[in-house]
């Protein structure tokens, strides 16, 4: 089984600060990989570079054998609305707030060429159910939803076209703990069901343990440790990983 996404020798410096210092990474189909580390460790930068939203100063990112940063914006956008998905930490960055829930879910379908209103609506209804939003609210605006619902809506909107690879940037970041658990479980179930490959950036160790098969620990732009999630968390080798794990309450 060959890798879906491969990154090699990524370097990116902001002035003297190394956001990425020789980072390499592979994601295979159906694999959930968590990138953990504290704020400023470079994990969000890595996500953005891998998703083609930011160019590295050195190194390359290959998706299905194609150089993500050399392919041109049109091809990259096509990828972003077909094979890829991106779930933002703040659902307001990933949703159209003045467009109804149904329209938000339908947008990717329409961008992919769907031109049958009835079918789009049926698909949107189905996806609202899957993310546990009452389909009766299909015509409501996202601003009428709670934060947790907004995040679930963003997930429905992202997954409706059945991408192969989804980038998630702290998807539970701004939510109450009780709401986080529900969202995590929902993500976990959908990812397993759809066989998605997911690259999730989080500083929530418990979330990473629940969702990820594999984990990368980042510090100062470097991957200091990586491996099976439970191996990294239960037998951390690097001093920084030990600190990270020991700082968590019963993860």
């Amino acid at each position: 089984m060959s890798a879906l996404l491969t990154a090699e020798g990524l370097h990116l410096h902001f002035g003297k600060v190394a956001a990425l210092d020789d980072v390499a990474l592979e994601i295979h189909p159906g694999e959930v990989v968590a990138i953990v580390g504290e704020s400023g460790s470079g994990k969000t930068t890595l996500l953005r570079v891998l998703a083609g939203m930011m160019a590295p100063q050195q190194g390359q990112v290959l998706y299905a054998g194609e150089d993500v940063h050399a392919m041109g914006e049109a091809a990259r956008r096509r990828l972003m609305r077909s094979d890829w998905g991106f779930v933002h930490q703040n659902p307001r960055d990933g949703l159209r707030l003045r467009v109804s829930a149904g329209g938000n879910v339908g947008e990717r379908l329409m961008a992919a060429g769907a031109r049958h209103y009835g079918n789009i609506r049926a698909e949107a209804t189905e996806w609202l159910k899957r993310v546990e939003i009452d389909p009766a609210r299909i015509d409501d605006m996202p601003l009428q939803f709670s934060g947790g619902m907004q995040q679930r809506l963003q997930i429905a909107r992202t997954l409706v076209t059945r991408p192969k690879l989804v980038f998630m940037d702290e998807p539970t970041g701004g939510l109450d703990v009780s709401v986080q658990a529900r969202l995590l479980d929902l993500i976990r179930a959908l990812v397993a069901e759809l066989g998605l490959a997911v690259l999730i950036v989080t500083h929530d160790i418990a979330a990473a343990r629940l969702l990820a098969h594999r984990m990368l620990v980042m510090r100062r732009g470097q991957v200091v440790e990586q491996g099976l999630t439970d191996r990294v968390l239960d037998d951390p080798q690097h001093p920084y990983t030990q600190l990270l794990v020991s700082s968590v309450l019963a993860a």
Binding site: R77, R81, R96, V99, S100, G102, G103, G106, E107, R108, M110, A111, A112, R115, Y117, I120, R121
Partner: peptide, 11 residues
């Protein structure tokens, strides 16, 4: 990239 315009029609 005109999916958005259809979103308006959808709405």
């Amino acid at each position: 990239d005109y999916g958005l315009m259809h979103v308006k029609l959808y709405e």
